[in-house]
Design a protein around this nucleic acid. Structure first.
Lengths: 334, 334
DNA sequence: CTGAAAGCGCTTACAG
DNA sequence: CTGAAAGCGCTTACAG
């Protein structure tokens, strides 16, 4: 058996209450001698408090949950790292759950984490029905912060990218290079951030007085092969001189399609991506893209969550991150 | 307040013991009617057991810890996903910790997880001193399984790649293409799997009757820029016609150096990597590499851990995974 | 400055 | 088949 507070108390000839006080640095009302004495025997016996017992009584576990679609999507590792670093620094542990944007899995994780009494949850979900989960959590007094994907508006705390703005910048960059026939490979139609990116694309075109061709906006599902499929058609048609891919993964697909069709980037097609994920630097020519500071966003989300855990009843906080256009080699003047 | 087993008991006019029994599907010794009745009111009140209280008494939390160097290293997300999937399927949650291969952080995570009473830990560490942590854990009756990196031999359960074998295959492939002057960019000298890979490289050369030049073995620290630095020198010297990079990240660095020096892959240099990480497919020409099935390895590690959690006292189990040579476009006959 | 006691929400022998 | 009671390892008023 592990050694407990009772063992310490017995050994030190004090009550468990006193031991508990020194462990928690409570009320100065404790003589320096006993404090030191108890501390010495805590060290001697290498005592480690049982977090379950403590959590049961304090109703705080210093644990947070993180539910995201898929850690394997290269956008997420940096996000997770940011969350983990900030959480750990503040003394919190994090539970990880991959939902695959699947309602059942999300629900299961929420339940699991709730039973394990997490102090709060960071949620990245695209699903419409997830709203019920957020509400449930909040009703149970478990703070939630949404990240990257989620409900627009400020009903919930959240950390997002200015997706519309980023897409606008990407498209405008293309327009400034004299492109007018610009394809847009969007993400899954149901995903909010994809819709926002499409909006930004449209706004840039509209501003430039170019009428939007709905046939130039096609979903590639945020996946490499989706981007590839869509790009193959767009490029074969030759309708378009530039492509804005709503994420980098799909931009990779565009590169593959271009290579297959013997088209050169940027000479034959200019392409802009979105995310600036790690290892995108291996693409040649280097991809011009919209940078999303995943690590920072994760860090911020964790901070907000921990704040609202500590000061109960804090009202929600929403942060929108500024996109940044990283001009590299995949675009050129027409 | 959340609703408790007491509330259920009161409402159902039974004792908490009975409620507990139906929750845990215990001893058939319970009448179908009461069981059903209690279940109905559990559902009605949407009762969720408190895992802290349960864990406190059962000494099982259905939680495992995962400590790895850095989720941001592209080798790990798949590993994590494999672990998470297997764990979740078996009803376990996972705590994530990034150690940066740093002794203090590792120790901190072990302590945190121990206090939170994880049932077991999956550990990926390169550090020599981590051995003490494993022993501590095992002494505290917390099963450990090492993954990818760790103590060689079978003192601990572990899931590893046959690193020596993989490197041997990579090098042999190069030899079969008539290369004899083959550079080796190794990982950090202290990392076991890097040492093993270097051994495999040496064995292949020895077998081919080629004397090993120690000056051709240089560490790139498993990082892109490290691979780049080393490759720049190797390629500038022109001493070498092929490079075996001990991981894909460093192979990326080789590509960058080659491009900068105006050398063509594979015409001027052949290169083989190790890992077959995601997105390596974006490298052009496509990288020939040794495939490491990260997802499967993670899954296996979780299964082994859960097994040893369930059947206490099971003796350790060590699994070595077979490497696979993925021949693509970065190597050619001399 | 310190202790006795109650209680957090469960499970599990032990009775009956 | 079911209940009373003890106990897991802590913390926290309440006394003194």
């Amino acid at each position: 058996m592990a050694i407990t507070i009772k063992d310490i108390a017995k050994r030190a000839n004090v009550s468990t209450a006193t031991v508990s006080r020194v462990i928690n640095n409570k009320s100065e009302g404790i003589s320096p001698q006993t404090r030191e004495y108890i501390q010495s025997i805590i060290k001697e016996l290498n005592y480690q408090p049982n977090a379950l017992a403590r959590g049961l009584i304090t109703r705080k576990t210093s644990t947070i949950g993180l539910i995201l679609p898929d850690i394997t999507n290269p956008f997420f590792p940096d996000l997770v790292r940011g969350i983990e670093d900030a959480a750990n620094k503040a003394g919190y542990s994090v539970f990880l759950g991959n939902s695959d944007d699947n309602a059942k899995k999300e629900k299961k994780y929420v339940q699991l984490m709730t039973e394990k009494k997490v102090d709060g949850i960071i949620f990245s979900s695209t699903a419409k029905y997830s709203k019920d989960l957020y509400d449930e959590l909040i009703a149970a007094d478990i703070p939630v912060v949404l990240i990257d994907r989620g409900e627009s508006g400020d009903a919930y705390s959240g950390v997002y990218m200015k997706n519309e703005e980023g897409a606008y910048m990407a498209t405008k960059h293309l327009l400034e290079q004299n492109h007018t026939r610009i394809g847009c490979i969007s993400g899954p139609p149901s995903v909010q951030n994809s819709q926002d990116r499409v909006e930004g694309y449209k706004r840039a075109l509209a501003e430039a007085g170019i009428s939007v061709q709905e046939s130039w906006i096609v979903s590639g599902g945020y996946r490499i092969d989706g981007g590839y499929e869509v790009a193959r058609k767009m490029l074969a048609d030759g309708e378009v001189t530039a492509i804005f891919a709503c994420n980098d993964l799909m931009a990779i697909g565009v590169y593959e399609a271009a290579q297959e069709l013997g088209k050169s980037i940027p000479r034959d097609v200019s392409v802009v991506g979105f995310d600036d994920i790690r290892l995108i630097s291996t693409l040649m020519p280097k991809l011009t893209t919209i940078r999303q500071p995943a690590y920072q966003m994760g860090k911020e989300a964790a901070k907000i969550l921990i704040q609202s855990i500590k000061k109960k009843g804090i009202k929600q906080k929403v942060v929108y991150w500024e996109p940044e256009l990283m001009i590299r080699q995949s675009t050129t003047k027409l």
